[in-house]
């Protein structure tokens, strides 16, 4: 199970970095989101015990770690909020500057 987690996290991380380095700002934002998903998967995998059952009292078998799942929910909400804010700002930027190419959105450097 851990091997699958490791491979999938690795693939997502690679994809995320690739997208993040695109010049298109929308793709950059998507890359950020994919990267965050990779981290979320990593978080799911680092639970302190390998459980199969839901973490309720009275469930049979080794329970899974409820803390990482709670953290994960928080992290998902935060990443989603950041992603929405980023896309919203890129939307305004596309109208204000007339482009979403990150090489052209560099008025501050001129």
């Amino acid at each position: 199970m851990n091997a699958i987690f490791a491979i999938v996290t690795g693939i997502l991380f690679g994809l995320g970095v690739y997208l993040l380095l695109r010049r298109d700002l929308v793709k950059t934002a998507m890359g950020y989101y994919v990267l965050f998903t990779a981290i979320n998967l990593f978080f799911l995998a680092v639970g302190v015990f390998d459980g199969e059952a839901a973490p309720y009292v009275g469930e049979q078998g080794q329970p899974s770690d409820p803390l990482v799942q709670a953290l994960l929910l928080t992290a998902i909400v935060i990443s989603f909020g950041t992603y929405a804010l980023l896309l919203g700002m890129i939307n305004v930027a596309s109208r204000r500057f007339g482009t979403i190419d990150s090489d052209d959105v560099d008025h501050l450097r001129r």
Binding site: L25, A29, Y32, F36, T82, L86, M89, I90, A93, H107
Partner: peptide, 13 residues
Amino acid sequence: LEAAIKYLLISAM
């Protein structure tokens, strides 16, 4: 706006 986009991306990293 441009500075905010840059900062949000970098800070997100």
